[in-house]
Amino acid sequence: MADEKCNVVEFKVQGQICQGTLGESLLSALRRHGFEVPSLCFHEAVSSYGACRLCLVEVKKGRRSKLTTSCNYPVQEGLEVQLDTDEVVRHRRIVLQLLLAAAPAAKAVRDLAARYGIEETPFVPRPEEDCIQCGLCIRICEAVGVNALGFAGRGVSKHATTPYEETSAACVGCGACADVCPTGCVKVVDADGFRTIERWHLKVPLTLCKTCGRGFAPEVHLTRMAGQAKLEIAHLANCPKCRGRAFAAEFRLP
């Protein structure tokens, strides 16, 4: 506890004194204090990457001030942060226009742009695209230890993908990528006993719940989970809902 206390630092946001832990993401700290800072590539569960450039803020440290993305800026004692300066907003608007051209089919991008009064982009759009290459899917896939996804290529052709743009042998179809995807471009569809993630060329059979008979999770995923938790696979034979019910029934008072 004592150590943690030493790590608490104070900094100012628009003049208001705030606390954070030394080295934590400035964006996290800002949001915890109720400040609104837009971002599409940040998620508490994984390391920050700094791809979307929307969380720009102005940070003053000592006498020097500069614009920086807040997601990968470490909180330090004595920082002075300004959020929506004219300059920040000017660049954020252009970044939004770029994103709007890069992924016009992404609703999250259109909504965010609309909040800044941007309906149209002056740039050349890629009409069908809905992915902004934020890399959250890759980072979550790494965090869960599967590593089925990665970036391929570089520059304009950089894109999140499975190796060789084919079904990945490593992918267990857990769907964590879809959970964190800010634009909804990774979609998990469970139907007819199969889980499909079209973006990753994945189609795997679902295990049917022993109780209700509904397909609820890919077999490979369950096997992996059982292995990691050192459980018999039989413990995972029921879907979470039925498992919950059975658990509740067992402990019901007479």
Binding site: G150, G153, T162, P163, S168
Partner: peptide
């Protein structure tokens, strides 16, 4: 060749996605 990349991934115990990323970067 594809098989070599798979072999490298297995041999170095790194994900194929990282090897493929490297080879295309």
């Amino acid at each position: 060749p594809r098989e070599s990349l798979a072999h490298v991934a297995a041999g170095l115990n790194v994900p194929l996605s990282r090897v493929y990323g490297m080879a295309t970067f």
